[in-house]
């Protein structure tokens, strides 16, 4: 039973990291990730990342927001405490539309932002290793997770083969 480790190598430009990510993906590695200072265009295809499921959550939250607004407005005005204000109809659907829209957007937007960070990125999380402080500046890292000590050397050799620099291993998971 070995401890989980990450083998990390570095690159210094976007074409290099894209090429390395593509090769790592083609070699059949599953548990690997790249770390970049900004969203690199074309990285999704290079790493073989599938489309995000986040929009489904956004859509669901938006629908809940719309339903909440409908329920709230119709119930309060029509059932809970009907009030005649200026002879306007109690079920004044057109007048309800602005709040339908606002609550839809509110719930959808907040859930998308919060859901993206918590459910998809598993943040906030302060325990995972930050491989190099320059990753948020100008360094691009490729990290491969391995299950045991024995796998470390072959993975290091692979990283060397794809021209990674400063290769080292860190204890922990991706």
């Amino acid at each position: 039973m070995g401890t989980k480790q990450c083998v990390v190598g570095y690159y210094f430009s976007t074409p290099e990291i894209l090429d390395a990510a593509r090769k790592t993906n083609q070699r059949g590695f599953k548990k690997f990730d790249t770390f970049t200072p900004f969203a690199v265009h074309g990285m999704d295809e290079a790493m073989g990342i599938k489309r995000s499921k986040l929009p489904f959550i956004s859509f669901g939250a938006g629908s809940v927001g719309l339903m909440t607004a409908m329920g709230l407005e119709i119930w309060t005005h029509y059932y809970s405490w009907p009030m005649n204000i200026g002879g306007k109809p109690l079920l004044a659907l057109p007048a309800y539309i602005p709040i339908f829209f606002e609550l839809t957007v509110l719930l959808c937007g907040v859930t998308t932002a919060v859901g993206m960070f918590t459910l998809f990125l598993k943040l906030p999380n302060f325990t995972k290793p930050i491989f190099h402080p320059d990753i948020t500046k100008d360094r691009f890292a490729l990290a491969i997770e391995v299950n045991s000590e024995a796998e470390v050397e072959p993975v290091k050799r692979f990283l060397k083969e794809i021209q990674a620099q400063d290769i080292h291993n860190v204890e922990g998971v991706l």
């Binding site: 990510a21 990730d33 790249t34 770390f35 970049t36 200072p37 900004f38 969203a39 690199v40 990285m43 999704d44 790493m47 990342i49 995000s52 986040l54 929009p55 956004s58 959808c108 937007g109 998308t112 932002a113 859901g115 993206m116 960070f117 998809f120 990125l121 943040l123 906030p124 999380n125 302060f126 325990t127 995972k128 930050i130 491989f131 990753i135 948020t136 991706l174």
Partner: peptide, 19 residues
């Protein structure tokens, strides 16, 4: 929030930004 610049993270991040 412990952001590390992971590309798998950037992927969802960009989708959220679009939404």
């Amino acid at each position: 929030l412990g952001w590390r610049g992971s590309s798998r993270g950037w992927h969802h991040y960009e989708v959220a930004y679009w939404v």
